[in-house]
Design a protein around this nucleic acid. Structure first.
Lengths: 201, 201
DNA sequence: CAGCTATGCCAACACGTGTTGACTAGAGTG
DNA sequence: CACTCTAGTCAACACGTGTTGGCATAGCTG
């Protein structure tokens, strides 16, 4: 085994461990405190290095945030899911991810900060456009209808994330995943495949 | 007409106009920027007075926030609403409030700040417990079931508020109120009066 | 008018923030 | 070994924050 395992782009610098440590600490802090409250000093302390290293490797706080929060919802391929199971499948997917390590889920981090930072909100809208909207397009061909359906789904899913993982609303935190999958899943299902009432422009 | 019109508690100080001005500016700033980003200096500037006056009249920033954000959802009396119209009625009620002046709605202000400030989140949970949960209790006698139903309703309503007023998700912002009332109203209706599947402990 | 109190402004403190630059050790290379 | 470049620390700057105390002024009260 030679020194360079991945002889593609990065020349495998000696500081890779530190960089990774910074990124790991940043993810945790941003997830726990949001963009503004998470300080470079705290992140550096968690990573066990000097704050100036963060600046050297990531430029500034905004770029560190961008690097730390890479959002891939990993939405399952809707083509492989029975049409009448879409709602349950999607809700189960997200709950399972949050169950693992909420501090590791970029979506929750973004949601926390998007409430007060417009630039983060813009980024969330981008995620919606590129990763959520396509799901609705697999159900309807009409773009306007698909956009509305996707928006309603976002309403439901983000509302669940907000109440369960951020606001910690007791009944929703205590609810068994199965119950939420059935109830919220039914809502998402209706938003995706149910009637809209023909009120589209 | 004598000097004191309301001769009850407050002796009608001469600085009442200033106090009100501070409160008005604080409401706007907190609604627009959230708790942390809204600065005492900015609020004082908006009110046209010195920052130290804010401290004199309201003690500190936290107390100013508490004074500025008084939350009365003014949920309509559920007893006067037909049981099968609860969902639509509730959604229409909230949308109508936001339509007016979002910066004046305390719920949105709280929602913005609750994402990053635990104490604000705790306050939101209080609002939920005292103003939302009772609605579900008017539908079911069982407290555990009522709590779950109220939680699901919160999921739906806060998700809508989040996407429409805070994240500004294009399809939800563009959607006509009627459409949202019908669609989200149906969801709330089912959460309140629909079957739960008997999975309650 | 004299005196007191409420109302307001000004300047400053103490602190935490992101960010920068100079400087030290230490590995890698000729 | 001598030289170079990287990884890292330290101290400090410039700024914005909440908060405080002192001082002027205007209005009310005797």
């Amino acid at each position: 085994m030679v020194v360079g395992m991945n002889d593609v782009q990065p020349p495998a610098r000696r500081s890779d461990a530190t960089r990774a440590g910074i990124l790991r600490a940043a993810r945790a802090r941003f997830a726990a405190d949001g963009y503004q409250r998470a300080t470079i000093r705290a992140i550096a302390a968690d990573a066990g290095i000097d704050p100036s290293m963060v600046m050297r490797y990531y430029g500034n706080k905004a770029q560190l945030f961008a690097a730390a929060v890479d959002v891939d919802l990993r939405i399952p391929d809707v083509a492989r899911v029975p049409r009448d199971r879409l709602g349950e499948t999607l809700v189960a997917h997200f709950i399972r991810r949050w169950e693992g390590d909420p501090a590791d889920d970029a979506l929750l981090t973004l949601l926390r900060s998007a409430a007060t930072d417009e630039s983060v909100a813009e980024r969330l809208r981008g995620i919606f456009r590129e990763q959520v909207a396509p799901v609705a397009l697999a159900v309807t061909a009409d773009p306007a209808e698909a956009a509305l359906r996707a928006g309603l789904v976002a309403t439901s899913m983000l509302g669940l994330a907000l109440c369960r993982q951020i606001l910690m609303l007791p009944p929703i935190v205590a609810a068994a995943p199965d119950v939420l999958v059935v109830q919220v899943g039914a809502t998402v299902q209706r938003y995706l495949t149910g009637p809209l009432g023909g009120v589209l422009p």
